[in-house]
């Protein structure tokens, strides 16, 4: 049906246009965004958990590391962080590989304004195919997101751990639980209801941070929207059109609004579930409504 676009018109033209190979890349990029969220959210939660535990530690150096990690991400624009981390991480990995793989290399790595490691230490190797470079870029970006959002999650979890009523901890100690047992059996199960408002906010922020992938050099939805929306002349494509970038970005806007709305509804349900049986105002209200 789409073999001869010149004869098409109206809706069928649009349908054929929206299913060209390049558009499939755009839809694929939407999948990349979802993948990024699916990878980053649990990883950031994990980093955040360790950060919060470290900040609470009674061993000063560990506590300083935890607090420093939380504090350092504040006060600085996050995209500066993203752009810094991606280069720093990339160079860090290459530097470590360089130390391992080429111990005999005697030239300095920083030569003026160049960063040179031996060819075997390049990451990914310059001989590897294009898709390896893209996948590597994606993972570096995902890791960067996880580190930055881990700090925010650590901040939230740290607050949540302190919000658990102290009498709960005292009761656990009165029952003879060790510090470790108190932590895992009393503190951790109870902290989530205090952490959830902060974490859901963070999730919304994370959704809204995904277009920044574009700045990290990943071919994401913003890249494709610019690419596909630009004016196309008949010489280069079967589907010539004017400057449609406005409409592509309008589409992205709608995509994000829908995503936000769905997340809001889902998080409300999770909150209702977590509130059940808790000694909070919300829990009390639920109990009264049920009775």
């Amino acid at each position: 049906m789409c073999s001869d676009p010149d004869t098409l018109s109206g809706l069928s033209w649009l349908l054929c246009y929206l299913t060209t190979v390049k558009h499939l890349s755009l839809y694929w990029a939407l999948g990349t965004v979802l993948l990024l969220l699916a990878v980053t959210a649990p990883a950031a939660l994990l980093f955040g958990f360790f950060g919060a535990v470290a900040a609470r530690s009674h061993f000063p150096p560990l506590s300083w590391i935890g607090r420093g990690y939380i504090a350092i991400v504040r006060g600085v624009p996050d995209i500066a962080f993203f752009m810094f981390f991606v280069i720093a991480l990339d160079q860090g990995i290459e530097w470590v590989r360089h130390q391992i793989k080429c111990p005999d290399w005697d030239l300095p790595i920083r030569q003026g304004s160049d960063f040179l490691v031996c060819p075997q230490a390049k990451m990914p190797l310059s001989t590897s195919p294009q898709w390896v470079h893209e996948v590597y870029g994606f993972w570096i970006a995902a890791f960067t997101f996880a580190i930055v959002f881990g700090a925010f999650a650590a901040n939230v979890l740290y607050g949540a751990m302190r919000a658990v009523p102290h009498s709960q901890i005292e009761t656990a100690e009165a029952y003879g639980m060790s510090r470790r047992q108190t932590f895992w059996r009393v503190l951790v199960p109870q902290m989530w209801v205090f952490a959830l408002p902060g974490l859901s906010n963070l999730w919304m922020v994370l959704i809204k941070a995904t277009p920044l992938l574009f700045l990290l050099g990943v071919k994401d939805i913003v890249y494709w929207a610019r690419e596909l929306g630009g004016t196309k002349t008949p010489q280069f494509t079967d589907y010539p059109h004017g400057d449609w970038r406005m409409w592509y970005f309008f589409g992205l806007l709608v995509f994000y609004l829908l995503f936000t709305r769905v997340s809001e509804l889902a998080l409300d349900r999770i909150m209702a579930r977590l509130t059940r049986g808790q000694a909070t105002m919300g829990g009390e209200r639920q109990r009264k409504a049920a009775a």
Partner: peptide, 21 residues
Amino acid sequence: FVFRGSPLFVQFFFAYFLFLT
């Protein structure tokens, strides 16, 4: 909802191309 529910980055792009048009 529109301005809080969508990324500022996409808003910038949309606005720029809207103004261009």
